[in-house]
Simulated assay, not measured.
Amino acid sequence: MKSILLPTDFSDNAWNATQYAVELFKDEECVFHLLNTYTPAIANSRFMAATLDAGNLENGARAFSENGLKEVVKRIQKNYRNPKHHFKTLSSFCLLTEEIKEVVEKEEIDLVVTGTKGASGLEEVFMGSNTVRIIKSVKNCPVLAVPQHFRYVAPSEVAFATDFNRFYTESELIPLIELANTFNAVIRIVYVQYEIKSLTEIQQFNLSMLRKYLSDVEHYVHTVSELNSVSKTLEMFVNELDIHLLAMLHYQHSYMERMTREPVVKRMAFHTQIPLLVIPELGMSAPYRHKREQEMSVSK
């Protein structure tokens, strides 16, 4: 049974991500952990200090959070009657990223699904700040970021962006392989080339290992020339091939890290228009990943 974490702030954006997750796993036994965190605003005026009741503020925020989670579960069960899906709710007085990290460990979460919404102005070019913080802070679990206006489409065309400069472990690729197997998806490995030249020996070796791991999955390798920036190039690739989901590993010097650091001017044209699966640099560090890897080995 999969364990899926759904952080929510009760916005339309969060509800859209919840709908996507429920649809994505409609044929699988799942426990969905709905999480809402709250930090009551504390007035900072010295004139209000005497009358401020912090306890009442926190109780009110907790009640709002708990009731909101109950309403989300009711809404899911009303719109998606699925006996394979089970729900747990968690209301926490905590910072969002800290609570997510704790829940991922405690509940052995397989995937975090979050809505992503750009901020106003120029920051809208990539994704919401909360989403970026989640991706950067969660080190042992994949994160799936769903754009606010994206409507569910079974991901039969998946792009995996990589530069072949890093060795992959099979445990890191499990989310990608499981996705491909579940939806009979084609994986399109896309390499953004900064200048026209042959792959190095290390890149060739890493590519051969990647293809070995994906041997049971239909996959193709695409080399594309960089257009202004990595983000712009991937956006063009996604649009031209009608990709349903973009996946990438997140590690030092990875595409994901570079995209979050690209100058605003270079990122202006890029909006997260399709779901983005960010796989952390697991290696063999996550103990419950071993179980998943063993299950896959047995099933082969």
Rank of each mutant, 00 (worst) to 15 (best):
A154N: 04
L210I: 04
L5N: 04
T89P: 03
F237D: 09
Y80R: 07
Y38N: 07
F87H: 07
A54K: 04
P175T: 09
S92R: 12
D27W: 00
E124N: 12
M48T: 14
V146A: 02
L179R: 05
K232N: 15
G68K: 12
R261Q: 01
L90I: 11
I134N: 00
A159P: 01
A61Y: 02
Y38H: 06
L95N: 12
N184I: 01
S11A: 08
L199D: 14
F64W: 07
I135R: 04
L173P: 03
H290A: 12
R258Q: 10
E195H: 10
S171Q: 15
L207M: 14
V103D: 01
K117P: 09
V278G: 02
E123A: 09
D163A: 10
S231I: 03
I196A: 14
K70T: 05
Y288T: 03
S215N: 02
H253K: 13
K212A: 06
T97L: 01
Q294V: 15
F47P: 01
F32L: 11
L214Q: 03
E124C: 10
L6F: 13
N239T: 02
S137R: 00
I274S: 04
S229D: 12
E98C: 05
S285P: 04
I135M: 03
L90R: 13
H149F: 10
L241R: 14
A49E: 15
S215Q: 09
R75I: 10
L6S: 13
L245I: 13
A185R: 07
S137A: 02
L214A: 09
Q148R: 15
E240R: 06
E195W: 05
D9Y: 12
E23Q: 15
E98G: 08
Y251R: 15
R151H: 13
H86D: 13
L90G: 02
S231D: 12
Y20F: 09
K300Y: 12
V112Q: 00
V132Y: 06
S254N: 15
H85K: 03
L214E: 10
P147S: 02
N140Q: 07
S137P: 00
L282I: 13
N44S: 13
F126E: 08
A145S: 11
A63M: 05
A180R: 11
A286L: 04
E107I: 10
T116C: 06
L176M: 06
T116I: 03
K266S: 09
K2N: 06
A63L: 09
R267E: 07
L24V: 00
L111Q: 06
Q77L: 15
K101A: 15
I134M: 00
V217H: 01
R62A: 12
I189F: 12
A159H: 00
E195N: 04
V186A: 08
E102P: 01
V143A: 00
G60D: 03
I135A: 03
K232R: 14
E218G: 05
D12N: 07
V132C: 00
P275S: 08
K139R: 15
K232F: 11
L34D: 01
K139D: 14
R133Y: 00
Y251E: 14
A61H: 00
